[in-house]
Design a protein around this nucleic acid. Sequence first.
DNA 1: ATCCTCAGCTAATGCGCATTAGCGCGTGAG
DNA 2: CTCACGCGCTAATGCGCATTAGCTGAGGAT
Lengths: 343, 343
Amino acid sequence: MPPDPSRRLTQRDIARLAGVSQTTVSLVLNNRADAESRIPAETRDRVLRVITETGYVADPAARRLAAGRNRILGVFTYEPVFPSATGDFYHPFLVGIEESAEHRGCDLLLFTSAPVVDGRKRVYHQDHRLRLADGCVLLGRELDREDLTRLVSEGYPFVSVGRRDDAGGPVPYVGADYRAAVRELVDRARALGHERVAYLGQGTGPESYVDRHRGYAEAVPAPVLVAPGDPAAALDRLLAAGATAVLSEEYADAVALAGQARGRGLSVPGDLSIVTLGDPTRPVPTDIDFTGFLIPRREMGRQAVEDLTELIEGGTPLQRLLPCEYARGATLAAPTHTRGPRA
Amino acid sequence: MPPDPSRRLTQRDIARLAGVSQTTVSLVLNNRADAESRIPAETRDRVLRVITETGYVADPAARRLAAGRNRILGVFTYEPVFPSATGDFYHPFLVGIEESAEHRGCDLLLFTSAPVVDGRKRVYHQDHRLRLADGCVLLGRELDREDLTRLVSEGYPFVSVGRRDDAGGPVPYVGADYRAAVRELVDRARALGHERVAYLGQGTGPESYVDRHRGYAEAVPAPVLVAPGDPAAALDRLLAAGATAVLSEEYADAVALAGQARGRGLSVPGDLSIVTLGDPTRPVPTDIDFTGFLIPRREMGRQAVEDLTELIEGGTPLQRLLPCEYARGATLAAPTHTRGPRA
DNA sequence: ATCCTCAGCTAATGCGCATTAGCGCGTGAG
DNA sequence: CTCACGCGCTAATGCGCATTAGCTGAGGAT
């Protein structure tokens, strides 16, 4: 019995009960090489028996302090994950992260304490708590550049979900190969007979947009970039440019455009093929089964944790792109009649 | 500059740079009463300046070890939260938990490392890591009784989301007042003229079922309990019992029953009113707008964190039930014609 | 001149663990 | 009869911090 029943057990208590030293308890607990070979089975069993009898568990904080490791992985999200509209989009990433963490026997620390300053969250805020975790997974459409730079320069182990440009050094990431996925879509469209494939979106900004647009620009002879926003205006521009197929950077824009087109009596995909470049980042009600591709979100989350644990264990930082799966859908078909650049 | 750039800064480093002792740095950092009154502004500013210049952050593990507090709240879920079908149900709880944690400046530790043994997860598994957090929120339809007992007896600060029976002592919880909510639904049905209101469900098992059923049993003169499972059989039994309204413990059962009824040419709610007792715990496709009530899931999560932090700071354990909001819906109406217990 | 504040610090300690150095003993080699 | 060596352990140390006890010097009281 420990003297104060409310006090939690320590290794010293176990040691006393087992009639050994605290060191021995530690050795047995972590069954170090020393223990395997040097501590006789009898002693070890005695210690283990006391441990199970008392239900002793090592204090993780002390462990961390002494050993420098924790088996805790941080998760930092630049977008709000749980609340809000974007939640559904980020959910699958978390599923993958959770799966992998469970598999690795790690706990996840959500850095919810990061305050929102000037409308955005930062890893490095006043009194940040990064070091509570062994490393960290970063999530979000757009990461803070200063954060990244500092993470890189401090050598803190982290992995970004989503490709990122260098930030004073290469950024470890697990991204989706948007570039290849978009190229493939364009190729499919062109193979079907589409001569003018347009791009509805910004094409700049976050890496994920840039990559999509680059894939598009590489695969098309004469790029047509149409800004989203007002669907009516966008449709006008697309028709004026003689586009028979359009790739939509954002799922929601595709929905709006399709609605606009059908509202004007155009058939989709008959008169206009509309292809989405990834899953919806915000919930959009639609019953259209869009052609496009699927972002391997779950797999990305999973792989990010794998890479992170490797990194923590001394591995080298990796950059990898995962392939996106083609989604056949029903909005890409051969153009019904060819049109010149002005109908 | 610290000697080894890879080594992380410690309070000693800060102390050296500021020309004070480590103690002083600690005092300034936590602006203790001592610091406020006893350390002159000049010294404090100097220390603070060095801190911001170097970007020093206290090691949370060390902090925890020394002070015993962490500002980390654990979250343990008995059901899989992220993956799986039940995810959507638990999501709102997490939203509330996250909100409150952010507000309190706490990080959340998801105990993903808990292995699944004999088909279920347990808080107290081999080498559990409860003590990494200051306290813990428990989530799930059914909590492990042994876990609860041990948590209570060890005096570990925790709050259950959902009412729980005593486990060797009162269990702190934030639950939904199913009992009152069900009573209210029955009263509404009876006020509309329903003389035989049945209960479709188990009525036993998890506290949440028991509470619903108790509310039902209290409000109805002659209870009729019908087991879910085969919707056809259930409908037969309901009709045989002369029920004109039925409360469905599980949302999915209500959907199945409604389908069955309409398939037989019965109108809902005309011939049979069907009322749900809470939100769907698993995703069910339906376009029926059921009458029933809404579980204040988000608010429950939020309140649980509030209560937990109070508890950690020395407050007394609380048990509270939050009211459920009535959902008008379209499946409860006055019975069209009265029937005896055999049509 | 001496004692006593009291401001403004610091030395020392311990949280619970992992780790390193090393102690006492027995045994076989020289 | 020494000496080296391996076995089975333990004492001691330090991780980075919070905290407690106390130290030093200046100024006021006696």
